[in-house]
Amino acid sequence: MSDKQNIETPVSVGNHLKHLREKKKISVAEVAAQLYLKPDVIEALERDDYTALPSEAYARGYLRNYAKILGAPADSFSSLYESDATGAPKITPEVKLEKTIGENKLVVAFSYFLVFILILLLFIWWQNDFTHFSLESKTLTHSTNNGLRDSDKPPRGLSYSITVVEHSDSPFYRAPSAEESPEATSSEYDESGGSAFITGNIDPIGSGPDSIKMVLSANSWIEVFDANNEKVYYDLARTGQTLTLNGTAPFSILLGFSQGVTVEFNGVAFDPAPYSSRVGIARFVLGE
């Protein structure tokens, strides 16, 4: 009991050990022999001079062993010896082992499902936005292949003229230039380009009570379907062309380049601009 009281008084560890050793009448050499240490290590411990010792860990170990030999409570010495810097970290019971891994799996499955839905929505949105571009590209394909493909069909709209241009040996081409020399024909063709042949009015197409007039200031793909969903016009119209289409209203119309087309329905002007997308494609219904 008296030992404990002594430890609690603010004396150094070394002093206290020395005091205990002298009380038990044990010499430094004896302690050193019991601990298998050099006497100067014991003296250094009693002087509280830890610089002579290898490291703090060794110092604490030596102190503990020394205290044990003297029959003093070793733990009180360890606590006296200030060594908070290298103290052992506390075992923190922050782990909850009770939780099952199954719950976790459910959360993971749900989050994967959410991600999948997000990707799906993104894909749908992208698809919607992209239809404009795909329509435009479709239009372009049509315009390049148009003449050749339709050459042997009965002429509708402008395709007739294009046929003439591309197949210079066809009778339609030859007819207007029969009296001229071949050189002159070719030079005229070179100078004026394709458009020279395709300007002007086309005879009214289709028959019905309602009529649409379209004047083109630029090339545009045009699709016109009548009330019975029958194709009235489905082709590329060239610059300078005027189309007159007859049929039964309502007409569902697609203009590939609405800025280049002036539309009149039964003699009344119609502005397709409000129906136009940013690339110029307009879809609307006339005569509803």
């Binding site: 860990a57 170990g61 030596y62 360890s78 103290g87 052992a88």
Partner: peptide
């Protein structure tokens, strides 16, 4: 040889 036990030897 002198033998010392480390602090908290289990961990």
């Amino acid at each position: 040889v002198s033998v010392i036990v480390a602090d908290d030897p289990l961990t």
